[in-house]
Design a protein around this nucleic acid. Structure first.
Length: 747
DNA sequence: ATTCTGAGCCAC
DNA sequence: AAACGTGGCTCAGAAT
């Protein structure tokens, strides 16, 4: 009861109460300090509301204090032992542990780790390298920007000679060989196709060697991409679990049972590797190739048990890394004048809309700060009041668009959102990402960025330069910033209806097979089968637009592929869920082979917990597919059904991505044969883009067509491609139009 | 001051 | 028995 009274007083806010509050607090602190033992303080601190991370740190400090590893700072002893002090002690503890750890590592340096920093030891290494068939390679660098940073040392593992080396070349302290000399001597080995090489994240090191004028050959294995193929779920986010990753330092303990500290753990976040003393650098860096080598042996033995996957990995994914390396290094050119002018136009429009919206909506906004239109949290209640309708969210497509014609303000908001997205993410942003060294724009193409095998594109995971960007989601309007280099064109070639052809092949549905045999539009063909109307009538309207039958088939098609629910389908077809369901049932009844194929995918996944991509080259593991959905267990039900949808989708997406990757390799070969400035410019899932001299010929186009349609066949289903030519991305013309235009110019 | 998460939206 | 598969980026706002 006394406590309650005290609290009531403390909560008062008159100045008298304030000073009373302070006096009471000070008195109580004096009392606690006088009587509280450190043990009691611990009880108090540990029972506070601490984050999990803090609690763990606190417990560690408590233990360290008990064993005498850390003690209180004499200056603090008079004060009450606080949580803040305990956390300060944690820092001291971590620092001393780090030093201890480093000393221990150096002391326990394996006898077959060699620091190469003399003429003699380097000569011996070169002689031994000549006897190796396959080695492991890694570089240590000043940072992660492969166009700006430099190599500070090189690690090699020589399996036959049975030792691991670190060759420091640019550390700030310690005896080292001349960097140019070392690189010149290593160059023939690095470029030797006959000397196999194993790396972890090879794209990075290949780019680093390239930067120093050293080519790369003989790539045999990349333990990072191989791991993705062996377990694409390693980094999956599961509730209540910390997700894994594909870093060597994570994989080695997990799969090799070897203890391994990360760079940050050992050296802290802001240490550059050229600051690391050589004895420590040796044990850290040589361990990298040591671990990479062992991870390779482990992975190889596993993958060999899946021969088709092994063949695919070594035959496609590994050589693809060279292709990506060239593609990324080539980079892009942006038309900065265009971007500036366009950006200014967008910003003017946005400003006008912003003024209007703020004027109209501010009166419905409560709060001390002005309404922020970019904050859904603030905008939702304000807009709801303005239009007199409670909005569930501000989803442009679902929520706002239907209200667009009824409310002027919603229409303006949609326009505003569209413009600010375009300028904020693309038109104004991309120009700031020019690389200082190459003066070009470089993106990343991660061949294992997705669980199905598609590429992802963007910035490097650990890259802090903020210069990365996603090439694969550039909207139509932003693509216009990308231009061909002077004297060149961009040639775009897509896989016509890639995923549908893929399904035709995998399912062997006769209606689809037949459509492609007759070179007919697949959606129209489905519409014929379903409606009984003639092809011409359902394919295109007289004005060239889509017929409603064809549109419906397209929606239904995607629904089958993606597992759309009847509710979403109803929205898309503008009908009721029941009708949508009935329509899908009728449709699938008319395509029984396709229906059974989808069912088969689901049954396979339910039984085995994974599905195969085309020709068993790759797996998509879906452990949740084996769940038994129980009544009332919503989470299980949701996960199970998600896995069922993924089963079919992954097979289609993954098999299609195999086609794209195989074709990229053949396309790169074609470019190399042609020379004369031909190279790959990009890839966006179902299309490849080339850079070519603007005096390319019709024969060149025939070669592109051949590469696109013949590099990877979906069984007996023919491939198709549409090719266009452009000086500016997205402003393409047909090949015929290009040559017609040229004829006109020369006349 | 830095890092994380969710909403939202771009691509195929 | 409600929400379409694969990604990445930006911004706001919260957590640390």
């Amino acid at each position: 009861m006394q406590q309650l009274n005290l609290r009531l007083k403390l909560n008062g806010d008159s100045s008298e109460d304030q000073s009373a509050k302070q006096r009471v607090k000070q008195a109580s602190e004096r009392r606690v300090a006088a009587v509280e033992t450190v043990e009691e303080a611990w009880q108090r601190i540990l029972s506070m509301k601490n984050s999990d991370a803090d609690q763990a740190k606190l417990l560690e400090v408590k233990q360290a204090m008990a064993s005498g590893k850390v003690g209180r700072n004499p200056a603090d002893v008079k004060k009450r032992f606080s949580k803040a002090e305990a956390l300060r002690l944690y820092k001291d503890l971590a620092e001393s542990q780090r030093e201890e750890k480093l000393a221990e590592l150096v002391q326990k340096t394996p006898s077959n780790y060699r620091l190469i920093n003399t003429e003699d030891s380097f000569a011996e290494l070169l002689a031994d390298l000549a006897n190796e068939e396959i080695i492991a390679v890694d570089t240590e660098t000043t940072g992660l920007d492969v166009y700006v940073d430099v190599i500070v040392g090189i690690s090699l593992t020589l399996p036959k000679a049975d030792y691991h080396v670190y060759i420091p070349i640019r550390h700030k302290e310690g005896e080292q060989l001349n960097p140019d000399y070392v690189l010149a001597k290593l160059k023939p080995f690095m470029e030797d196709e006959g000397l196999g090489k194993v790396l972890h994240n090879a794209i990075f090191d290949i780019a680093m060697f390239r930067r120093h004028g050293v080519g790369f050959g003989g790539l045999a294995w990349d333990s990072q991409t191989a791991m993705h193929l062996l377990n694409e779920n390693e980094a999956e986010k599961v509730k209540g679990q910390t997700p894994g990753n594909y870093k060597l330092k994570y994989l080695a303990p997990k799969y090799l049972g070897v203890e391994s500290d990360t760079f940050d753990e050992l050296f802290g976040k802001n240490t550059r590797f050229d600051d690391v003393p050589l004895d420590i650098a040796l044990v850290y860096a040589a361990k990298d190739t040591d671990l990479t080598w062992h991870l390779y042996k482990f992975q190889e033995s596993h993958m060999r048990r899946m021969p088709e996957m092994f063949k695919y990995y070594t035959g496609v994914e590994v050589p693809l890394l060279y292709v990506i390396s060239d593609l990324e290094a080539n980079g892009y050119i942006l038309d900065l004048d265009f971007a500036k002018e366009y950006g200014e136009k967008l910003n003017r429009e946005a400003e006008e809309l912003h003024d209007y919206l703020l004027t109209e909506l501010s009166k419905y906004h409560d709060g001390d700060t002005p309404l922020n239109l970019n904050s859904p949290q603030q905008l939702k209640p304000a807009l709801s009041k303005a239009i007199g309708k409670q909005l569930p969210n501000l989803d442009a497509k679902r929520t706002l668009k239907p209200l667009k014609s009824e409310f002027e303000i919603v229409a303006k908001l949609l326009k505003y959102k569209g413009i600010t997205k375009l300028s904020g993410t693309y038109i104004d942003k991309l120009p700031t990402k020019q690389n200082s060294t190459t003066k070009r724009w470089h993106s990343r193409f991660n061949p294992m960025g997705t669980v199905t095998g598609r590429f992802s594109s963007g910035k490097d995971e650990a890259d802090t330069s903020n210069q990365g960007f996603n090439v694969q989601n550039q909207p139509e309007d932003a693509r216009k910033m990308f231009v061909a280099p002077p004297g060149k064109v961009i040639i775009g070639a897509d896989f016509k209806a890639q995923e549908i052809r893929c399904v035709a092949h995998l399912s062997e549905e006769p209606a689809l097979i037949e459509a492609f045999e007759q070179q007919r539009d697949p959606y129209a063909t489905l519409a014929v089968k379903f409606t009984g109307k003639p092809y011409e009538e359902v394919n295109k309207n007289p004005d060239g637009s889509d017929t409603k039958e064809r549109k419906m088939m397209k929606v239904a098609w995607l629904a089958a592929l993606y597992g759309t629910s009847k509710y979403t389908m109803a929205e898309q077809l503008n009908t009721t869920p029941d009708e949508a369901e009935a329509f899908m049932k009728d449709l699938f009844d008319s395509l029984p082979v396709l229906r059974d194929w989808i069912k088969g995918n689901e049954e396979f996944a339910s039984k085995y917990g994974f599905v195969w991509m085309d020709k068993n080259q790759r797996k998509r593991r879906l452990p949740n597919a084996t769940l038994k959905a129980k009544w009332g267990d919503r989470d299980t039900w949701r996960e199970k059904n998600r896995a069922m949808r993924q089963a079919t989708n992954a097979r289609v997406q993954g098999s299609s991505s195999i086609q794209t990757k195989v074709t990229m390799i053949e396309a790169a070969k074609m470019c190399a044969e042609k020379g004369n400035g031909w190279c790959l410019w990009g890839s966006v899932h179902d299309e490849l883009l080339f850079e070519a001299p603007e005096d390319f010929t019709r024969e060149d186009i025939e070669d592109v067509k051949r590469v696109m349609t013949e590099s990877y066949k979906f069984g007996k289903v023919a491939n198709g491609t549409d090719i266009e030519v452009m000086k500016r991305w997205g402003e393409g013309v047909t090949v015929d139009a290009w040559f017609e235009n040229k004829k006109g110019e020369t006349k």
